[in-house]
Structure formats: C-alpha cells, structure tokens
Design a protein around this nucleic acid. Structure first.
Lengths: 345, 345
DNA sequence: TTAGAAAATGTAAGCTATTACATTTCCGCC
DNA sequence: GGCGGAAATGTAATAGCTTACATTTTCTAA
C-alpha cells in the first residue's frame, strides 16, 4: 500500500493500481469515479485518496471503449464573439460540468459546409451528443447523425420536425409584437437592418415577424426596406447611414439584433438626430450593450443563459435516457428603455 | 456474405463484422487498413469491398488507445462571457481547426479548485494539450500535467518559469505607462477599481503597475485606494459610487478592465459629473464596449485574437514536435479616446 | 434475535483494434 | 516427391476501463 504497484507501458497508474493501493476492487474504484453515490463514504475517501496519491486519471480510450460513450458533448455555434452565444454556451457548459461532462466547441462562421465539417469531426472524436444553432442545414448531415445515433438539440430556433428536439423561442412573434408596439406609438415609415437571412433562420423570422405586424394593420410590407449586413457595430452604422440619407427617412429603424442597433444609434446621433424624438431604433437579444448605450435600447429580451442550460439538460436526457424528442419554447419579452418613443408629428 | 453478420450494442460494424463478411480474420482486416502491403491483392480487394459495403469506420476509443493521441486540445478560461476570452478562444479554435484538431472549452469562474477539476477532466477525456489563462495555480496541477506529458501554454500572462510556454503581454508595464500618461496630464488624486487580485495575476499586475508609476515620481502609493470587486458593469458602478461620495473625490479613476470602467463612467455621469472635465476614467483591454460608451474609453489595447492564435500554434508545435518551451510577449498600446483628459485646476 | 431487504462490494465478461507469435500455404529446386 | 523458407493468414494476448450479475455486509423491523 502506498507504493506504486504496477508499471505499464505508459508508466502511468491504471485503475488496478488504484484498486490495489486502496485495497478494493477495480469495480469500486470505477464506481467512485463515475457513480460516487453507490459507494460508502469510508471507501470513497480511501479510494479518492489513492487516486490523488497516485495522480490517477482514467485512460480516455479505454473508458470510451468500455462505456461506449465519452462524456463529451459538442456545440457548433456561429461564433463565440457574439455575446448571445457566449452566454448560452457558458450556461450549457456549466450544466454539463455539473453532470461531469466535457464540452467541445467549434464555430461555423455561419458557413454551412464548415458547420458540417465541424459536426463530422466532433462525431469522429467521440461526441455523445451535439448542440446546434438553428435548423438550417443539409438533410444528409441529419441522416448522418441519426445513423450514428448521436442525439442533437437545436437551440435559438424551433424545428417543425416532430422528432427534432429543440430549445427555442418564437423569433417571428417576438418581432411582430415589437413592431406592433411601434405601430401603436404612431410610426408609419420603417427600415429594417437585418443580419444576412440566407443561412440564418432566426434573422429571417425576425424580418418576417415585423412584416406580418405591418400587414396586420394593412400596411404594404414592401414599404419597409430591409438592409442585410454583417454582424458588427460598424455595419449597423453603415446601414443606418443609408436610411438617414435616403429620400424618405424612416421614423423607426428596427434592427435584427442589438449590435446592429447600437451601430445605428451611434450613426443617427452623429448625424445630429435625437433618439427617439427624431428617430426610434430597436434591437433584439437584450445583451449587456443594450443597457450601456445611451439612450438605453428598447429590445426583445431573450433568455440566452436559460436556453443554454435547458439545451444541455435536454441533450443529457436524450443520451442517458434515450428519451423521446423534447421541444421547448421559452418566453421572450420586450424590454422598454428609451430608444423607442412616439412619433412627434 | 453480404449480409450484416453481427449486431453489436452500437449497431455499427466492427472489425469483426468486416472480417466475417470478407471471410478472413480480424488481423487481416486490420492489416488491410494499416499495412496493405502485407496482404495479398485478392484478399485485400475482398476486404476493402466489405469495408465499403458495411460502411465501416474504426472506433474512436479503440483508436485512441492504440495511438495514445486524440487530436483534442483543451482551453480552460475564467469565463466565456468576457469578450476578451471569447475573442481569444475563437482565434484559438480557428487555428486548431486548420490543423484538423478539436477544442474542449471549460470555464473556471476564477475558482482555483474548479479550474483544477476542469483540467483533470480534460486530461481524463484525452486532451493532447491544454491552454491555461494566467500562471496562478497550485504546483501539483503543473506536476500532474508534466507527469502525464500534457503540454500546456499559458496565455494573457507571462511565466517566470523557463520551461513554461506562454503567450502573454506585460500587464505591469502597460498599466504603468497608462498611469504615467495620466500623471503627465496633471492628475494628483487617484482611485483604482480592480478585479479581485487574489486569484488573478493579471489584475494584480495592473494594480502594481499603476502603483509603480506613482512611486516613479515620488507619490505615496497608499494614497491611491484600491477597490476590488466582481467583473460586471454594476460592480464598476458601485465601486465608482464609493469614490465619488468619499471625502476626497479622485480626479482619476483607473479601472482594471473595460467593463468596470464602463460602469464607472455611467455612475459618474448619473452623479452629474462630466468626463473627463470633472473626472477621468480609464479602462484596460479595449473591447468593443470601449468604443460604444460615450465618451469613448481611453484604455490599453490588448491583441486578444492574436494571443489565441499564437497560443494554438505554440501548443500544436509542442505536441507535434515536442519542441522546447516557447515564450512570446505581445505588444500592447494605449488607445486614447475621450475619457482621460487633463485636470482642470 | 433474525428474516428479509437494501446497500456495498467483488468477480469477471466484454468493449474494439493492434500485434507478437503460431500456423498454414505456396513456391522453387534438388 | 519432398524440403526449406518466404509469404499469407490466423490465434489469442493485450490495452484500461465499465458494468451485469453474484456475493457479502449492513440495516430495519418484528
């Protein structure tokens, strides 16, 4: 006891070494590490001490082989530099860690092929389950995941497929409600600054929601020009500029996300406009920056953290209980700050 | 022949399935895949056909055990919600993907024990190398990593250990230079709002750098009170409030990072102070928000993305060439915006 | 007490691919 | 035809862990 009892190829301690050191069977050591509740406190302490003394860490390959799973979960997101995903992924990871899992992260940069590659790589590296953002991707990647029995959860959007688990919210109706509120405040001319909608179902639904609100009260939706641009403050500025110098300046610029809205606010202010007296601007997401900007940004609050957490829980239950698809729609609400006001005519 | 001969738990073909299908032993199949020259052409063709028909792909765990390498790299960061790490990790990941590697991410929430757990978990899950933030941690975790032959790179800080690879910058001197600039503008009373320094060498060095600048010109450094707080805008506000209502209001509040500085600016403005006429405020990091806030935040620009990229390159070369420790110090520079001005007395 | 249930622990089979070693097949040549 | 040795192929040990099932210990309640 206390001595290293066995030297293997790698010169690293194995489960058996720990078992010998703690004077228990390998099964008990394994349980200590994986299901500590099933081991008495006494034994557990002895084993963990041996683990510590020998600096034991399980061999990954062996574990993966024996357990037929790795404890690794993947998340493929568009980018980590977007605060909404950063927050969601942070919560996703925290939830996984609480279940003693580890997280892969890869970013797809909104590129469909790159996303597919990232997914395949994660599967090849042993991911037990995968978190995806949005539903928009080639059918064969879904087939691939199905064939290999890798559960997936879609987040930040909702799927129409009954067998696809998701944790999302209603982008369409949230945008519609926000526009409806603006209409009640008397706005009659509009511009929309959106992220690129081609590969991004969330962005698209937000535009469509706003459009629907216009139609609801009989306004021709084509009277609202939509500018699609990149996700950055400067792109928001540029788009806003186009609206401001256009022949008919809108009284409301609705933005598909807060980052674009912040750019729009800055550009409008630089052009000498008062917000919201001269022009109203709204965002979507409610990230930190929405509170920092002056005036405060009226936007749609999305529970990003909760989404990440629920996504992890869903994925865990899919893997562990191989339960049926879970579909979860979270609530959003409008956060009224100062950037949306009544028209002053 | 031609039928799936064996059904296992995973319902995926194994070497044995291929062997049965091709009517050879598993050894021959393995040889076909790894050393085809050692197999007769006849047999080889038959085996490869079976491989194709059954859609066989080698099992990841088994392969990991054999190769003793996974192609997975880990990053343990304090939090993903901090834009500086988000940017760094994004670049880190991009660089890894270019080499066909996959990234683990875990956050430690600035908790030493949690960080240690995350590191051990990543090793247990097969990480070939690990990125760490800062140098502050227990010696035994370094021993553990060394014993297991897991290369590590420290980022966002520099190590005094000759054998420890790092990609960092000089927190101390950057802060010192910023304070020196403030002194040249005539400031004479100071406050410092810092992140908690206990577990955070970067925060500590920034305070020490500012202190050193005071000493450089003979000011008693204890005349600058330091408030330590959490990383959030609201905590920055609260700390700023204490300085403002204190008996001797500083002319300069230096903040250990941009987030605290943004909170400080907002609080000062709410108290009716003009920045920088009544009070100057500086940040550190140069994240997006520094440009958004009004007035623009004078801060220290840190090349976060470059740091992540270089860290990945360093780690890859450590694993692949098992080369010696690489130590890299990146440049920072002061970004002058509007929140630091001359004293008006 | 003690039967019986519950909790703790142990035994050993199994997961998949590699590979040292054993066996079979093939071929050339006397 | 038969022998030696190379080439081809097969057998089975091995890697380090998990886990179903078996056994032992502990606890509960009558």
């Amino acid at each position: 006891m206390g001595l290293k009892t066995n030297i293997n190829k790698r010169n690293l301690p194995t489960l058996e070494d720990v078992a010998l050191d703690a004077n228990v069977s390998t099964a008990t050591v394994s349980r200590c590490l994986n299901e500590p509740d099933k081991v008495s406190i006494d034994t557990r302490e002895r084993v963990l001490e041996a683990v510590k003394r020998l600096q034991y860490a399980p061999n990954f390959g062996a574990r993966a082989i024996a357990a037929n799973r790795t404890g690794i979960f993947g998340a493929v997101i568009p980018t980590m530099e977007n605060a909404i995903f950063a927050r969601g992924i942070e919560a996703f990871q925290k939830t996984l860690v609480a279940s003693n899992k580890t997280m892969f992260v890869a970013s797809s940069a909104y590129d469909r092929d790159l996303e597919e590659l990232q997914i395949r790589t994660m599967v090849a590296r042993g991911a037990d389950g995968i978190l995806l953002i949005g539903t928009e991707r080639n059918a064969d990647i879904y087939d691939f995941l199905k064939e290999r029995n890798i559960p997936t959860v879609v987040a930040w959007a909702r799927s129409t497929n009954k067998d696809q688990s998701f944790v999302g919210f209603d982008n369409f109706n949230a945008a519609r409600q926000l526009m409806t509120k603006a209409l009640e405040l008397g706005h009659q001319s509009f511009g929309f600054i959106s992220a690129h909608t081609k590969m991004n179902d969330r962005a698209r639904e937000r535009v469509l929601g706003a459009t629907a609100a216009l139609q609801d009260i009989g306004i021709d939706p084509t009277s609202m020009p939509v500018i699609e641009t990149e996700y950055s403050i400067d792109c928001g500025r540029e788009a806003c500029r186009k609206f401001i110098i256009g022949k008919r300046r809108p009284t409301l610029i609705m933005c598909g996300n807060d980052v674009l809205a912040v750019g729009a606010i800055q550009e409008a202010q630089d052009a000498g406009l008062n917000i919201p007296q001269d022009i109203s601007i709204t965002g979507f997401d409610d990230i930190e920056i929405a509170k920092v900007i002056s005036p405060g940004l009226t936007t749609v609050h999305v529970p990003h953290g909760e989404m990440g957490q629920k996504a992890a829980e869903t994925l865990l239950s899919l893997v562990e209980d191989s339960s049926r698809a879970t579909q979860l729609t979270l609530d959003t609400h409008i956060v009224e700050r100062k950037s949306l006001g009544p028209t002053s005519f």
